[in-house]
């Protein structure tokens, strides 16, 4: 998993590595990276981190443009409908390219799988499952046992309908045979705060949102949604280890770079190379203080 710290370091490496003037089949007009979320959010930060090395490598201006709204579909649609010249790119979370088509079939103005060209995966972010400190659950296995013993009585919060956090909870219900009611919130902060107050039993959350409450002892992390443990939470088991029925459980949030479909392969390959250079194995050593890049889009 790529942490924010690693992304910053990787972006710096790409900056050092990149020479050049308008390369890879590009014109010398500015490149725009559209983001479907407000400035300062996780996807926006990643887009800005990669704008600099892209600028250095390609020798032309790279501008990040926030077009927030409509579950990030305004930005995604704009890229889908742009000329396929690599000058209009999308830094996307999984929602606008892999989930929204299942939720907004009649309202979507673009087909993400047909009208967007995947360029590079930038980051993968597991969710963490948290409960209130007084909840009698300390492990992933205990969480599933508790949910099975209290069918129909428990609830989980997420930062909104149809986001990966909700899907993570619903996948647990489906695979484990539990019946934990989803309670959507507008954003991750109230979603985790209401676990601490006891209004909801648990939350599927980004680590970034839950960490302050974990650190002050109000919340307990009891599971993660990746197959592997998170470096930041080495003592917290994956849900996949909680019960035999969950052996194949995994639900990840992720984000990455897209171009318009039919963008020349040479441009897509060059952009992929720039991102890969930034992410490659010259990552700084992880430290116990490093924070996850778990983020709300």
């Amino acid at each position: 998993m790529l942490t924010r710290r690693e992304i910053i370091a990787a972006a710096g490496l790409a900056l050092i590595a990149g020479p050049a003037h308008a390369q890879g089949g590009y014109s010398d007009r500015p490149i725009r990276i559209l983001v479907g979320y407000p400035a300062g959010g996780g996807v926006d930060i990643v887009a800005r981190l990669f704008a600099e090395p892209m600028k250095a490598a390609l020798g032309q201006s790279v501008i990040v443009e926030n077009r927030a709204g409509a579950s990030a579909m305004i930005a995604a649609s704009a890229v889908a409908k742009s000329p396929p010249d690599g000058l209009t790119l999308l830094m996307a979370a999984s929602g606008e390219v892999a989930i929204n088509q299942h939720l907004y079939r009649d309202k979507m103005s673009y087909d993400p799988l047909r009208e967007l060209a995947p360029v590079a995966l930038v980051g993968i972010v597991p969710c963490v499952v948290v409960v209130a400190a007084q909840t009698p659950v300390r492990t992933a296995a205990e969480l599933i046992a508790y949910a099975r013993a209290n069918r129909g009585k428990l609830s989980f919060s997420s930062s909104g309908i149809g986001n990966p956090q909700q899907l993570a909870g619903e996948l647990m219900n489906s695979m484990a045979g539990t019946d934990v009611l989803h309670v959507p919130y507008r954003g991750s902060a109230p979603a985790v705060t209401d676990v601490a107050t006891g209004a909801v039993t648990m939350s599927f959350s980004s680590l970034a949102a839950a960490l302050p409450l974990i650190q002050d002892g109000r919340l307990r992390a009891v599971a993660v949604t990746s197959r592997e443990r998170m470096p930041q939470l080495p003592d917290v088991a994956p849900l996949a280890e909680a019960a035999p029925e969950l052996k194949s459980y995994e639900l990840l949030n992720w984000f990455g770079l897209f171009a318009t479909a039919a963008t020349p392969e040479s441009i897509v390959a060059r952009l992929n190379e720039i991102v890969a250079t930034g992410l490659r194995d010259k990552r700084p050593p992880r430290s116990s203080k490093s924070r996850a890049s778990c983020r709300e889009s």
Partner: peptide, 30 residues
């Protein structure tokens, strides 16, 4: 991950998310 591998990943994830949305009968907010 190459662009082709990334395309396969996105397609696979979209299928998986679609199955979960359908199974849980998740409806979008209006």
């Amino acid at each position: 991950m190459s662009p082709a591998q990334y395309r396969d990943f996105v397609t696979s994830e979209a299928e998986k998310f679609g199955r979960i949305v359908a199974q849980a009968n998740i409806k979008a907010e209006n």
